[in-house]
Computed example of a mutant assay.
Amino acid sequence: MVGALLLGFVAGVIARVLMPGDVFRKMSGPASWLVSIGLGLVGAVVGYVIFTLGLGIGDDDIFDWGGILSAIIGTLIVIPVAGWLLRRSGKATP
């Protein structure tokens, strides 16, 4: 459980640094940390589905540190989708 949270946090932070200008850019402190963890966890699942289930690359553990690259790539996919959903619902500022 702790490993999954750390993986989500690291993947979320790295992906948010690689993708400047996202809808979460004005957050700071604990809210920003929680968003990074959530985005990273969802990104890890997306990366697992794409690479392990879809392409057959990687191992069978979703939240394994060996899958950090796929988690970061998955998070880079999740961030714009989450931003689009927030903008569409009117809860994010442009």
Rank of each mutant, 00 (worst) to 15 (best):
K91Y: 14
R87Y: 07
L55T: 07
G90P: 11
P80V: 00
V17H: 10
I62C: 09
D61R: 15
V49N: 01
V45W: 02
R87V: 00
F51L: 04
A82R: 01
F51T: 06
I79V: 08
V42H: 01
A31L: 14
W65N: 11
I37C: 13
G54M: 02
I57P: 14
I72R: 04
L76G: 15
I37Y: 04
V81L: 15
P94D: 11
P20R: 11
M19R: 13
G12E: 01
S89Y: 04
S36F: 09
M27C: 14
L39H: 08
L41M: 15
G8R: 01
L5I: 15
V78G: 06
V81Y: 04
V35Q: 11
Y48D: 07
V13K: 07
V35A: 15
S70N: 13
V13L: 09
I72L: 09
L7A: 05
M1D: 12
M19N: 15
V45S: 06
P80L: 03
D64A: 14
A4F: 01
I72E: 06
I37P: 02
G21A: 09
V45R: 06
G40H: 01
F63E: 08
A44H: 02
D61G: 14
G67Q: 04
D59E: 10
L39D: 05
L5G: 09
T75E: 02
L76R: 01
A92C: 11
V45P: 03
W65E: 09
V10L: 12
G21P: 02
L18F: 14
L85H: 11
R16C: 05
A15I: 03
L34K: 14
L39I: 12
D64R: 09
L7Y: 05
I79Y: 03
L86N: 06
F51P: 03
V17E: 02
A31S: 14
G21R: 15
V42N: 01
L7M: 10
V10F: 10
R88V: 02
V46C: 03
L69E: 09
V81Q: 06
I62S: 06
G56C: 08
L18H: 07
F51Q: 11
F24M: 12
S28Y: 14
A31Q: 12
V35H: 06
L39F: 10
V13C: 11
L7N: 13
V2W: 10
P30Y: 01
L34H: 12
V10E: 07
G90M: 03
G54H: 06
I79E: 03
S36V: 02
L76T: 07
M19P: 04
G38S: 13
D59T: 08
F51M: 11
A31F: 10
S32T: 06
F63V: 02
S32G: 09
G38Y: 00
D61E: 02
I37N: 05
V35Y: 01
F63A: 00
M19E: 11
G90Q: 02
I68Q: 12
V10A: 07
T52N: 15
G58W: 04
A4I: 10
G56F: 03
P30W: 11
V81R: 00
L34G: 15
A11G: 13
G8Q: 07
G8M: 09
K91V: 13
S28W: 12
T75K: 13
Y48Q: 06
A92Y: 03
A11T: 05
G90L: 00
W33M: 13
V81E: 07
V45F: 00
V81S: 14
I62E: 03
F24C: 03
V35I: 10
D59M: 05
